[in-house]
Amino acid sequence: MTTLIAKTVSKVCVPIIILFSISLLLAGHDNPGGGFIGGVMFASAISLFYVVFGVDHIESIYKNHWDKWFAVGLLLATITGIGIMLLGYNFLRSAYVSATFPLIGEISIISTIFFDIGVYLVVIGGILHIFKEMGEDK
């Protein structure tokens, strides 16, 4: 599969898929999408890299610890829950903040987005960790 076309195509496609996955993540609260779907999409993109270029090649360019990703994601998700408790709410209660900025307009943030980002990171990290370990195994 390591043809030149595949390499070229994947070099173009992967960043687009990654961007798309981020947009899925952020849009998830109102539209189809969310942390899972975004994460799985991101993971598919990178796994495309792994398949096309080979794990060793990718690793030789940039050594990545995917386990750190899911650790951070898990931490982020849990801390979100705990953080809300500091405001006097129960664990994982959603808090909604909206503010109006000049030029940008009104921006509203709901705390669950951080939870979703955590999910996103965990899914990416978990799946790619499995891929990498499996791919590296000879």
């Binding site: 386990d67 899911f70 650790a71 931490l75 829950g81 664990f91």
Partner: peptide, 16 residues
Amino acid sequence: VILIALPIIFGSLTIL
């Protein structure tokens, strides 16, 4: 909830 969340947080910290 602390009984559940604390080991999870600590688990992720121990990975890091």
